[in-house]
Nucleic acid binder design. Sequence first.
DNA 1: GAACGGCAG
DNA 2: ACTACTGCCGTTC
Length: 633
Amino acid sequence: MDGVDKEKVQRIVYEMSKGSKYFQNEERKDAFITQKINNLRTQCDKLTQADLSHFQKVADRRILELEATRDLSRIWLHVDMDAFYAAVETLSNPTLKGKPMAVGSMSMISTANYEARKFGVRAAMPGFIARKLCPELIFVPTDFKKYTYYSDLTRKVFRRYDPNFMAASLDEAYLDITEVCKERNINSEEIADELRTSVYEETGLTCSAGVAPNRLLAKVCSDINKPNGQYVLPNDRMAVMTFISSLPIRKIGGIGKVTEHILKAVFGINTCEQMLEKASYLCALFSQSTTDFFYSVGLGLGKTDSPEIRFRKSISNERTFSATEDEVLLYKKLEELADMLSTDMQKEGLCGRTLTLKLKTSSFEVRTRAVTLPKYISSREDILKHASELLKAELPLSVRLIGLRVSHFDGDKYGGATSDPKQKTITDFITSIDANRNCFLPDVADHDLVGHTETDVSIGSWQTSRDPIDGNQSSDVNCQSGTGWRSEEVRTSGNNASCSNYGQVKEAVGSTFPIQGQFEDTSTLNLSNLPEDEGLNSCKDKTMLWLNDYKCSLCGIELPPSFIEERLEHSDFHLAEKLQKEEESRIHQRTSDSSRSWDQKNRITRESISKRQKLSQKEGSYRPIDYFFVKEQ
DNA sequence: GAACGGCAG
DNA sequence: ACTACTGCCGTTC
């Protein structure tokens, strides 16, 4: 951003925060990092020439191995909407045009428009500081429904170029445009141009694009000519190496403030190519996974594969409020969180056995306390009971945030489900009912939120929404809005939108997940947990079955309107499923509800999977969209 | 394997 | 008067 007086901005930010609890905590963290840097330096100094030559050899070998994995056969495009939330708000209120504006609140800004950025106002900056930087700044509260709606519009465009595109958040996506380029015999630059034009025509919003041989690079590229621009990095090794050589490491997804600081302070690394120059030191001081990532950065390597399915590993929620030591109040907050979390988990049919309590003290110190239970839980009572015990052990304490997380899901480690006692029971039970029925394993898996992430090489390469979410009147009693809009979102938009939170995307529910997965879950729950009539009605009502004329409201499978036969078959399937279920409940009347749910879930999921596989074989070009996640909320 | 802290987006 | 959520890594026991 030119025109920004960086010194002035820094000074104001410093003056506004200096002396605050937050600031003191930042200083504490800085001190810790400084210590870490000193330790690393010491270790470096201890390295002998012999050590270094040894590590150099190891590093060289590893770099060669990584180089051998280079794949220049794919063309990836990363799209990034420009100041997305702010742009959407301006669309719905044109009087904002040209004025400095920020989406968010006094506590936290999610996105600032370009006029505001001229003043140094940025995403993730608290509103009160932003106002100091720009007194006439207009604040607009976040409205995720709106962003989800526009996000869906953009995704309709993306889908035309890559039906299997990866949504990284509401405003970012990765598209493998290799095939389109081939089929239409045009180059990637033209595709990018055309795509951006289409997005603008269909949404009124501008975006930027980056094209490169892998996702890591594509992401970097989309930032180069932002806003409303694009940059193409050809699939050529020399071009990549030249591009990467002078690139500051901070531009790379996965290298944040701290890593940048450490690498610079200890090794003098500023650019990507220096990752290779200092390879022996890195090799000596960091783990294999970390050095692999660093070397990959130096080589300009990134992921080129199509999204693999991934499972959600945890689900959580947290709230900030004005710090208090009042135990009654704290328990009440805890109860609300347990309530919301349980609801979210049930929406997705999740049960987990590790519960983690997160506390942020009034001095911003973060603590987590966890327990792993002998059985899987998901009910509000179970969560609350164990959470209360964890909390109790920490009191008295002045707290400003409480969070709860459940992880270690059943069916976690693909198939690992059977290793748990309770599951064995269920498995056995179901098996006894129908020997043919296969439980758990990948099936269960699919029913989870799956996403894919690009994560990977260690410090990951995923993306999340760059616009932090506004905590919504953060500091106060407001703990509800979060979930509220989420559930609405799910029902109304029924699409890819996700509402997430973590960055890598979501559909409607909580945070981050792939849409497909989410829907499947939702549907599963509908069928198994709701009164029979509901499921049945939905099945019968063909017009209601296809959300946005595209996605099945029951299981989330995505079938475009042109798939007429498949659609018919699909609705028949749900009907049959329904009937079968009714029949079954008659037979196994005494079956416990929970067991029946499991059973039902598995069967449905299975069907969905095989259906999808069938489709992809038949129609090579069509595959359900996998999402990844987004986080927002 | 579990717990915890931290980074990143 | 500095968010919400998720994933992964490293360390320690």
